[in-house]
């Protein structure tokens, strides 16, 4: 009797949710799992109209969390947008569909310079590059004037308590590695030790390690120098003339987010159409304008408004194809980075 009551309540909960969300005409649904604010909604609406379907967007804010969730059995997503190193891990774990390029005619537009120099999946076997970004430094030009192009900016004690670096062990240790001229994917413990000493030196002057508030902080003048992701920073820079950006001469890290189709997708056919739609140069241009990131589609430049054709966020700086480094997964050696990062965090 009481069991029944409990079951009834559970059933009620399910029924209410099903009622509210399951109803309506049964159009095909595409479930997209991506970063927040990373796609132009008008384009999504256009896609919905063109293919008479519904796109449901869910967002994640770290590759690892998305991965953990999928690994734990989360299914139902048709297109996911992980960063390259994570696409590779997912592919190695047999979680992704091998792409059928006959269904992706627009893949011919993808930038060869990117594929040859930087890409992990050079033949686009399991992923299509969606957006390129890089880590750079934004600073308050009004207060600091011009500053030299180097990571050494974080050693300046005058700005103590007004600077941030990312709360990301690969990015921030990576900055220390690049400063010393090492690869950001090194497995050498001595090199990591030197990077650690460097980051510790910087840490003394930092307000915090941060991924969340630096955008608002640099704009409001709370922070004077921040390390951040290019698209995010340019969104702020474009509306703040008192700010400027800088690419350290020692090198920067490049990140590419890919579109992949998980093996568990409910609707892979629609997923192909979706990916193809966003490789169309015209659409890619609109999407770039919205996100401030660079789609690796050179043709798209034509469709950008005149004044944006030299925008350093949307048009990937040529030099970075050679000088930039891309994060790779290190497998078991990942633990070395984590250990160094823990030591950095705890040291007073």
């Amino acid at each position: 009797m009481t069991m029944k009551l409990g079951l009834k309540l559970a059933a009620l909960a399910t029924a209410v949710s099903a009622l509210l969300w399951g109803c309506g005409p049964s159009k095909p649904v595409l479930n997209l799992y991506t970063w927040s604010d990373y796609i132009d909604e008008n384009l999504v609406k256009e896609f919905e109209k063109q293919y008479n379907c519904k796109v449901v967007i869910d967002t994640f804010d770290s590759n690892e969390f998305m991965y953990a969730k999928l690994k734990a059995g989360g299914s139902g997503y048709d297109v996911i947008v992980p960063t390259s190193y994570m696409s590779k891990i997912m592919n190695d774990q047999k979680m992704l569909l091998k792409l059928d390029h006959s269904k992706l005619p627009n893949s011919k537009y993808i930038d060869k310079r990117y594929l040859d120099n930087l890409a992990i999946d050079k033949k686009m076997e399991y992923c299509i590059p969606y957006m390129l970004g890089y880590t750079c430094i934004a600073y308050n030009k009004e207060k600091l004037g011009d500053i030299p192009q180097t990571w050494e900016v974080f050693s300046n004690e005058k700005n103590k308590g007004r600077m941030t670096m990312l709360n990301d062990y690969r990015e921030t240790i990576g900055a220390g590695l690049m400063f010393n001229g090492y690869s950001i994917n090194t497995r050498n413990e001595k090199e990591l030790e030197k990077a650690k000493e460097q980051v510790l030196k910087w840490k003394k002057n930092l307000a915090k390690f941060d991924n969340e508030v630096y955008k608002a902080g640099i704009q409001s003048g709370e922070f004077l120098v921040v390390q951040g992701y290019s698209g995010d920073l340019f969104q702020v820079l474009d509306e703040s003339p008192n700010l400027s950006f800088m690419i350290p001469k020692e090198g920067v890290m490049i990140a590419c987010d890919d579109m992949v189709i998980p093996a568990s997708a409910d609707n892979p056919e629609l997923a192909y159409k979706f990916i193809n739609f966003f490789m169309d140069p015209k659409n890619a241009a609109k999407n770039m304008e919205y996100t401030c990131y660079a789609a690796p589609i050179p043709e798209a430049k034509k469709y950008l408004p005149e004044e944006l054709r030299t925008h350093p966020g949307m048009i990937f700086p040529e030099a970075l194809f050679k000088a930039g480094q891309i994060i790779q997964d290190l497998g078991d050696d990942n633990a070395k980075y984590l250990k160094v990062w823990d030591e950095i965090k705890i040291s007073q």
Partner: peptide, 23 residues
């Protein structure tokens, strides 16, 4: 954040990711 799946983004989850990437 932990137990959500497709189509279950609630406001606090949305706000958190907006804080990082959106306005």
């Amino acid at each position: 954040f932990f137990v959500g799946g497709p189509g279950s983004t609630t406001l606090p989850v949305k706000v958190y990711s907006m804080m990082k990437h959106g306005p």
